[in-house]
């Protein structure tokens, strides 16, 4: 009986997914709106009243997220470290191609730090450098990172990278340097000033960014209507980055 139930659930989920795909392309995703990120006064700390999140509609990404990755590279200056081998290069965000073995149906999605509510990287960090801000953004406080790379091991999304070499001329708003771990920080420097993350600006028709705690925000409305699946939902991490059309 339980097997049958499991099968039914799976079937219904598939149906739901199809329905979501159809809806998403027609109804919700409009262009990025300025009101998604209200500007915070510079001298005020972030509050836990908001939780930043992102909803990515995979079907509406014409390039599978490649332009989002490029925008991230430009914003934070990673991906071109002069001495690193290709497999050593930092990778804050990457595109992953998924193919169904039976039907050969395939799609590509961008994967970066999922900004979990219960982040495993924060659990394992021996110094407290891997941290979650009050507004739900998970990031590395590089001032106290000792470069042990436990967080890289713990992250189920392979979202973190290690800098192996001395760097110069980093972006002033995005410090990165030898011996520290780094990852997507949801463009904290932009969000704190009321701007959207760089990757969201690069794919305005496919991505909604906003406050998950506010039931009236565009992202909450969209997720209420269409859902928003997590990658590895079985881990119960309650990710802040959600996908449509997986």
């Amino acid at each position: 009986m339980s097997q049958i139930n499991a099968y039914r659930r799976k079937f219904m989920a598939t149906l739901g997914g199809v329905a979501v795909g159809g809806l998403a392309s027609s109804v919700i995703l409009r262009t990025v709106q300025a009101g998604d990120v209200p500007a915070k006064p510079a001298d005020q700390p972030v509050s836990n009243q908001v939780r930043w999140g992102m909803l990515i509609d995979v079907n509406r990404l014409t390039d599978g997220g490649a332009s989002m990755v490029e925008a991230c590279k430009r914003e934070h200056g990673w991906g071109n470290d002069p001495k690193a081998r290709p497999e050593q290069q930092a990778q804050w965000m990457r595109t992953v191609k998924v193919t169904d073995k039976l039907t050969k149906y395939s799609f590509t999605l961008p994967v970066m730090c999922q900004h979990c509510e219960e982040p495993p990287c924060v659990d394992v960090c021996p110094t407290g450098a891997s941290m979650k801000r009050a507004d739900g953004i998970v990031q590395v406080n590089k001032h106290i990172c000792i470069g042990c790379r436990y967080c890289m091991m713990a992250c189920p999304y392979k979202a973190r990278s290690f800098v192996h070499e001395s760097l110069t001329d980093q972006r002033p708003h995005s410090p990165r340097g030898i011996g520290t771990v780094e990852s997507c920080n949801l463009c904290v420097h932009r969000v704190d000033q009321g701007q959207l993350p760089a990757c969201v600006e690069a794919a305005p028709n496919a991505v909604i960014f906003g406050d998950l705690n506010d039931p009236n925000s565009r992202i909450s409305q969209a997720m209420k209507a269409l859902g928003g699946s997590q990658i590895r939902a079985d881990l119960s991490l309650n990710t802040g980055v959600r996908y449509l059309g997986l």
Binding site: P45, Q139, D192
Partner: peptide
């Protein structure tokens, strides 16, 4: 630096 990284204060 601690105010900026942890609390997001960017004066």
């Amino acid at each position: 630096r601690d105010k900026t990284v942890i609390e997001g204060i960017r004066t």
